[in-house]
């Protein structure tokens, strides 16, 4: 069974590119366009990995991360934070909130895939 990955980002073109990339690599992909939708899909669809953008409408990535980590049922869910604000404080904040990895935009597709595979222990 292929691993299920949720892409949470409000930038359509980013979603399109990552969606295409991950599907090509054989993952099953879900998409969320804002923080609330992302959290709902994490709870409903139980993806193995969430690619979580920080700056999203309605609920930002940090809050989603915190909410996921606060739910013991979701402890298996891996979280990879993606942000365009590459400041060290944000990296440590995200990791402090329980994210499993952190990538700064723009990233190379190879790095992203490597990071995804590492988190999914593949």
């Amino acid at each position: 069974m292929s691993k299920k990955i949720l892409i949470a980002d409000d930038e359509q073109n980013i979603v399109i590119s990552i969606d295409f990339l991950l599907r090509r690599e054989g993952f099953s992909v879900l998409v969320a366009n804002d923080g609330e939708e992302a959290l709902a899909k994490v709870r409903g669809e139980r993806p193995d990995l969430v690619l979580l953008d920080v700056m999203m409408p309605k609920m930002n990535g940090f809050d989603v991360c915190q909410a996921v980590r606060a739910d013991p049922d979701l402890s298996a869910t891996r979280i990879l934070m993606l942000t365009a604000k590459g400041r060290d404080t944000e990296v440590s904040k995200g990791l402090g909130l329980g994210a499993d990895g952190y990538m700064t935009k723009p990233f190379s597709t190879k790095e992203l895939l490597a990071e995804v595979r590492k988190l999914l222990e593949m």
Partner: peptide
């Protein structure tokens, strides 16, 4: 600055991703 970088990085992310997809495939 943070806003500007964010606004610059976002389109760059798409451009790089699409370019790499095109190149690799």
């Amino acid at each position: 600055m943070s806003s500007v970088t964010h606004e610059l990085r976002t389109p760059l992310t798409s451009i790089r991703a699409f370019s790499e997809l095109l190149r690799d495939d």
